[in-house]
Design a binder for these strands. Structure first.
Lengths: 349, 349
DNA sequence: TTGTATGCGTTATCAT
DNA sequence: ATGATAACGCATACAA
């Protein structure tokens, strides 16, 4: 593989000139530059990024640390990250399966020297020191921060508000026996959504303690298994708020299997509005979250910090949610003619 | 940020010793090593990977070039790649939105010096020279190779076989008017699936020319719009083979909107078996592809080439497909009790 | 406009 | 077992 020296000698110039041509740093004589480009093309030369970042101390790369890659949730966030990064000529170094604090620290370390900054998603509480330790050297942006006390920019989702409005909607429809399928313990999103559920109940003048809370872990399986608990309670709930869509989907499967009609016999609401939600039957009423934007904003905050010399004060953003009323909660919900509603534009964008 | 020199002086040793401790290369006196670890911990030191890879010429990173990141297809492939890479202590550098040949070349170049190898997915035909040019310097593995003539390892999907068996199934159910919604022109997957469709028809003793072929581009929208064309044809088709699941989903939406019953009035079969397929109503009969394994095998082939000094002969693998018969094609298909079938294990793994 | 020379943080090859 | 030092490929301050 050709180096800058090969090109220099092939073009009859010094390596400094070759460097200048590739970096467009100083004015170079047009004919000299031309010779350089030719030589480079012939030798199939392109600067070695490892060497380049060693001298410049910039990598044009940002690292992304995720707990997992499964499902539409992460998929969409990554897509947002990738697009925003690409727009700024940045590359993306991904590393997943980091649930615990020590794994996050290890992954962050192993990226040292390869990234200009880190986007970390660690929804499990107890990652505080981990992030604190990591964020000393490199600018860090948190997605769905699990701790409010860290000095670190972050972008999150209005979990509380979303859950609150979803449950409020059920209450307004007349439901008085509402169950929740909770997310995993120690997960900040899960806890906030639970808080929103309880608050909506309390504000409506009821006792949250009287409402059934079924444990779950954000997997479809948990939603499926929750069905039994819910159906056995007496008086039987007339509505269920699942803390995420996958659990709602599992619940719908179970209800289908035991031939319980949704929403007539049991109303169901989810959270996240993954792509699948509108294709289910009945289509799923859920809390919409702009996951793409979540990733995009994380990148923008990170690059802002990176450019301002990392000394900026930390910025904390929270993305608003909106309730998407479909069929699974009864009443107003209807199956929308999916495509026609979008007009002529490509609705994938 | 601390460097190896800081640690060396803090521990009262030379930088060579620090390097040795971190690389476990030579035997180092236990007490000396201990001093080094302590000093490193105190200074929060970790080797700079850019510098390391400059001298070792290894990056422990593999690059992934994709045309897009949208949808479950890419999501699952990436997940397979990430897991396999992580298992081998490799990191993953992602770059998407590379539809055209020149973009692939540019992306590959911009990764020079940061990766030990490249996984490229460029299903568009005409990327031959691009890949040929790229694969000179770095080991490359192609996913769904668009050209059989390149000297390069690859792992693909049995598109032809999958389409063939899907259409054969429809023919066996008695359908004689079958339409296909095609994938984008120039896409190798789309072309192979079309070929499988035609061949199945021909083998059954019919004229492929007499069967309706509706253009599409793998998007849901295309499937939705195809409905009109299909329903207007006379005699009206009794079955449709969509070249991927997203188009099948779009078609199902349209049929729902105009109140055509599936499968009674029109049978539908898809391709890919994305997670959503089994939750649709009716659940979608489709050709299953192990996308996770696709990514995994790509990594394994790449690392094998990387370790063997890149001089190995190219290996070409093709992953088999299997038809998953559900409700949308009528007859045998039934809605399976999704979770119960999986037993007690976590079926996400 | 162009060339020379230094340093980036490491690993690896010699020494000792 | 440990230390000195030469690469690695490039950017850049300085000199010409």
């Amino acid at each position: 593989l050709a180096t800058i020296r090969d090109v220099a000698s092939a073009a009859g110039v010094s390596i400094a000139t070759v460097s200048r041509v590739f970096n467009r740093s100083t004015r170079v004589d047009e004919r000299t530059a031309d010779r350089v480009w030719r030589a480079a093309a012939k030798l199939d030369y392109w600067p070695n990024n490892a060497a380049r970042s060693l001298t410049t101390n910039r990598t044009q790369t940002l690292g992304v640390l995720l707990p997992d890659l499964y499902g539409e949730f992460f998929s969409e966030v990554i897509r947002g990250i990738d697009r925003a990064a690409q727009q700024q000529q940045f590359q993306v170094l991904i590393s997943s399966s980091h649930a615990h604090a020590d794994e996050v620290v290890a992954a962050a370390r192993s990226m040292r020297g390869r990234t200009d900054g880190l986007i970390i998603m660690a929804s499990d509480t107890g990652c505080s020191e981990a992030v604190g330790q990591v964020s000393r050297g490199v600018p860090v942006v948190l997605i769905n921060p699990s701790c409010k006390f860290i000095e670190c920019s972050s972008v999150g989702v209005a979990n509380f508000d979303g859950a609150f409005s979803a449950v409020q909607h059920l209450l307004r429809l007349g439901h008085r026996e509402i169950a929740i399928i909770k997310g995993p313990a120690g997960n900040i999103d899960a806890e906030e959504r639970l808080r929103g559920f309880r608050e909506a109940v309390a504000v409506a003048g009821w006792e949250p303690e009287a409402f059934l809370e079924v444990p779950g872990d954000f997997t479809e399986r948990a939603g499926y298994l929750a069905a039994e608990v819910i159906l056995q309670k007496s008086p039987r709930p007339t509505a269920v708020f699942a803390a995420n869509d996958y659990m709602a989907i599992g619940l719908l499967s179970a209800l289908h299997d035991v031939e319980i009609e949704v929403p007539q016999q049991l109303a169901v609401v989810g959270f996240d509005d993954i792509a699948m939600a509108k294709y289910l039957s009945p289509s799923l009423t859920t809390v919409h979250v702009d996951l793409h934007k979540l990733g995009e904003r994380a990148v923008q905050l990170l690059l802002a910090a990176h450019r301002s010399g990392e000394k900026e004060n930390c910025v904390r953003e929270v993305l608003a949610t909106s309730l998407v009323v479909r069929q699974s909660c009864g009443a107003a919900g209807s199956r929308e003619p999916i495509l026609l509603k979008q007009g002529g534009v490509n609705y994938f964008s």
